[in-house]
Design a protein around this nucleic acid. Structure first.
Lengths: 330, 330
DNA sequence: CTGAAAGCGCTTACAG
DNA sequence: CTGAAAGCGCTTACAG
């Protein structure tokens, strides 16, 4: 590999001058500059990132910690983050916890060792240890999707969006509303969305039956199983609507309902959250809420940039969302 | 940041010894080792990657060049690659060309400057310049999805899979088969799949009507428009089946057909390629072929590892696939 | 306008 | 079993 020394020699100047030329810092004589430019061109020289990093402490890389790489939400978010990082000439280092909370800490450390300039964390839980780790962390961290104390966080409007869904369902006359959620260890998706459900039911004096509530694990299959469990357990008194905290689980739930001959939304209305592409094309199309994940990615990217620039206040923001009424709810 | 010098001082040894301890190279006294281990633990010390890289020329990072980040195929592939790279303790640097061929070269150079240990290229085209760039490239490159001359490549069985689809359609008695493809600048998806279509038609002495063939751009909408164009242009003699080279375009095509009151597969059978999750849940469910993208990602990851290990033969492999018969074809 | 020198944090012969 | 020293490829005061 050609180094800055080779360039200097070939151009007949010192490497100091080459460096100045490269970084556009300080004066470089006209003639010298031209010779350097030429040599660089001929050799296809590229400065060594690791040497630069060692000196400047800047890698030009930010790390993203994702719960799961191959998910529609993740890829939309990454796409948004990528958009702003590209603008800044920064690269992205992807990291995937596969939903294992321990890995969140592990990757935080890894990214530290790789000297990421900043980190975007899409946490699924926010335990003690995680918070401690971040507190003493030498690298700017921002969170997306979960509110982490002391960390600039961009969250989705989980409670509000869920309330809107419930409002819609109740407004349409549904009284017996089931719920398919996920584990409450996930504050945003698990707790918040469920609270919105129970709060809405109570606010309208509707019965919250334990047997109408089931828990899935984000997968389509788990939605199918959850729906099955609810229906099987309430043969005589099935719900007439079901709120699923995720489009994928809603898809599974619909699959079961259709198999069993329930008409949607005639017998049972169904609503989800997330606006997966699929939701528009299944039959009936799914009523859901769009979280503008890509824009959220951009926004959290900007937050990170600001934080990296030294703006230290702990910013909390909630991202916009939009209720999308389709055919699975009348 | 704590450095190896801090650790050495705190443990009362030289940094040479700490380095040996860290890398498990050469002898380290029992007692010294224990002290070092302790100090490292207390400080949470992590060696600086850039310093290590500068010395060893290994970054532990591989680059992936993707046509588009937020796509089901991409995320499956990345997930597979990630699986094997994680095993090797390597990180992934993601790069997204947004379907711009110039960026393929740009990112190749970028990854060179970042000293990626290897590169996996998911090209969409394979122009002159790209090949030249790779030829003189100092870093191992492998390709997925396209066969690049002189480069170890793992390709999908585009021709065979498409032929199978056509065989199925023809076997079911379809004679007037339409085609929705993509630009032929894409050798794999554009050319190969189309060749399989025209070859199959000719082999069975079926007419290949220009007006039954349309071109989309991978998007659902473009499938919709392509189908519309075909139907509109053939009012008196519409095809009774259509082969779409992509599930997303097939989804759009079905959407249009359903809107227009065609029954699927009664009036028009539809088939795609890719096995998007969605394909299983739309109505009717879509006949398609599964390319095992995640496994392909693993396989190409292994190919890269081998290439990095110095195995230089230009390996060409074709990945397995599976025809999935569902309800959009009788 | 330009260069010599120090130093970033490691690893690796080499010598003991 | 351990350490001193050189060097990886840069950038950045500093001096001229």
């Amino acid at each position: 590999m050609t180094t800055i020394n080779d360039i200097a020699k070939l151009a007949g100047v010192s490497r100091t001058t080459v460096s100045r030329f490269l970084n556009n810092s300080g004066y470089v004589g006209q003639e010298a500059g031209e010779r350097i430019a030429q040599v660089i061109n001929e050799t296809g020289y590229m400065p060594s990132q690791s040497a630069q990093t060692l000196r400047t402490k800047k890698t030009g890389v930010i790390g993203i910690i994702l719960p799961k790489i191959s998910t529609e939400t993740s890829s939309r978010v990454v796409s948004g983050i990528n958009k702003v990082m590209k603008r800044e000439g920064m690269q992205i280092l992807l990291t995937d916890t596969e939903l294992d909370p321990d890995k969140e800490i592990e990757y935080l450390r890894l990214l530290k060792s790789r000297q990421a300039d900043g980190i975007i964390l899409l946490a699924t839980n926010i335990g003690e240890r995680l918070q401690q780790e971040i507190e003493a962390f030498p690298i700017p961290v921002v969170a997306l999707g979960q509110n982490i104390p002391g960390v600039p966080s961009l969250t989705y409007a989980d409670y509000d969006a869920s309330s809107d869904i419930m409002q819609l369902l109740i407004g349409k006359g549904h009284r017996k509303i089931g719920f398919i959620g996920v584990s409450e260890t996930d504050p945003a998706v698990g707790k918040l969305r469920q609270s919105a459900y129970t709060d809405a039911m109570r606010r309208h004096n509707l019965e919250v039956k334990e047997s109408w509530m089931a828990e899935g694990d984000f997968s389509i299959d788990s939605g199918y199983e959850a729906m099955k469990w609810i229906i099987t357990g309430n043969r005589s008194d099935p719900p007439d609507a079901v709120f699923c905290v995720t489009d994928r689980m809603a898809t599974g739930a619909m699959e079961y309902l259709k198999e069993q001959g329930f008409s949607i939304p005639g017998d049972v209305a169904v609503a989800g959250i997330g606006d997966a592409v699929m939701s528009r094309y299944i039959t009936p199309s799914l009523t859901t809420v769009n979280y503008y994940n890509e824009e959220a990615g951009e926004a959290v990217g900007e937050m990170l940039l600001e934080t990296m620039a030294g703006i230290k206040y702990s910013k909390k923001m909630m991202h916009k969302y939009r209720l999308i009424k389709r055919d699975s709810v009348w």
